[in-house]
């Protein structure tokens, strides 16, 4: 059984301009000890999906579908049940790490508080444990760092302190929204290195949400590509990079700097209020055929490992093979 099973998750928000549907039926599984990356641009619904999984949507938000964690349904769970899962079973790190830290408490006390609550430790044992966690996320020397206040710390250190708080309850699953955004390259690398070590040493599963395909590539087992509220492709890291099946994934790879000539994707992401009946990427897709704008494709299997699939008409079993993207190393270009 999957550790986390998300099925047909939809998230909508009531806004003054009408109902805005940010997530339109996402389904995916996360196995124990597995790192899954959700990659998409702003407006793809990736962060809304993460908040919905945790039951942390703002009051104007509404989630439908199913989110099962270790067999327990989270979407309909009450506040008390959710409180037992959050922090203890599922740790979370948000993009704004400063908001997760209390400026009036030492970092060590904040980590120890979480450890004491979730691991049932006494104050002294909790503080000793907190120091160990600070060391594990690379805040050296942990004894001194534990006694400091977060106010004067750099962004990278705060991000790692937030990570330490998320990890203090020894969660089985970590959810992280843009864990490395805004960090310097060498710091980002250190954070990812810590995450990966926790996965291999403690068997922790992780869902990393990012807009940067390059960043998550080195730590993820599987990658989900989100576009306009749907997962348009999912597969192993190897399949996503070597055999990108969806034209959007191929275009994202082409827009990554450092892979030769830059090929940005023309146009912008669609307004979720005005989506047509067809594939949401059709207007920007240079491989689109007439039918693409008329009806939405389902997720069809794509070549590579099991579980590699793409929501694209070109992978419909009856589609003519020569039209298919992904040939020539994952690049689709003019």
């Amino acid at each position: 059984m999957a550790l986390l099973a998300v099925a047909d998750l939809s998230v909508s928000f009531r806004t003054p301009g009408g109902v805005l549907t940010a997530v339109r039926g996402m389904s995916f599984d996360v196995q124990a000890g597995e790192t899954v990356a959700i990659v998409g641009e702003s407006g793809s619904g990736k962060s809304a999906a993460l908040l919905a999984i945790l039951g942390l949507l703002p009051s104007n938000g509404h989630a439908a579908g199913s989110v099962r964690f270790g067999g327990q349904e989270l979407l309909t769970a009450g506040a008390a049940a959710l409180g037992r899962v959050r922090g203890r079973q599922i740790g979370m790190v948000f993009q704004d790490a400063s908001g997760a830290l209390n400026p009036t408490m030492t970092v060590g006390a904040q980590v120890a508080e979480v450890a004491a609550r979730h691991l049932d430790l006494g104050p002294r044992a909790a503080l000793a444990y907190a120091r160990a966690v600070l060391g594990a996320v690379g805040l050296e020397p942990p004894r001194r760092r534990a006694g400091e206040y977060p106010g004067r710390w750099s962004g990278g250190m705060r991000r790692r302190a937030a990570l330490a708080i998320a990890l203090a309850g020894r969660p089985r699953l970590l959810l992280a929204d843009e864990p490395t955004a805004g960090l310097d390259a060498t710091v980002a690398r250190a954070v990812l290195d810590r995450l990966d070590r926790l996965r291999s040493e403690a068997g922790m599963a992780a869902v990393l949400v990012s807009h940067d395909l390059g960043v998550v590539a080195s730590v993820a087992d599987r990658v989900l590509i989100a576009y306009a509220g749907r997962i348009v492709e999912q597969g192993s890291v190897g399949d996503i990079f070597a055999r990108a099946a969806h034209p959007y994934t191929a275009a994202l790879l082409g827009a990554l700097p450092g892979r030769g000539v830059l090929r940005p994707i023309p146009g912008g992401t669609p307004d979720p209020r005005y989506l047509g009946p067809g594939c949401a990427f059709a207007a920007r897709c240079h491989q689109a055929v007439r039918g693409c704008a008329l009806a939405e494709p389902a997720a069809y299997p794509a070549p590579g490992e099991d579980g590699h699939s793409a929501r694209c008409w070109l992978w419909h079993p009856d589609a003519p093979a020569p039209l298919r993207p992904g040939r020539g190393g994952g690049h689709v270009g003019p």
Binding site: R189, A190, D193, D196, A217, G238, F241, G258, R259
Partner: peptide
């Protein structure tokens, strides 16, 4: 980040 992720996990401390 490498342009194409290597087959094995690539993260190493800086």
């Amino acid at each position: 980040p490498p342009p194409v992720p290597p087959v094995s996990r690539a993260v190493s401390p800086p």
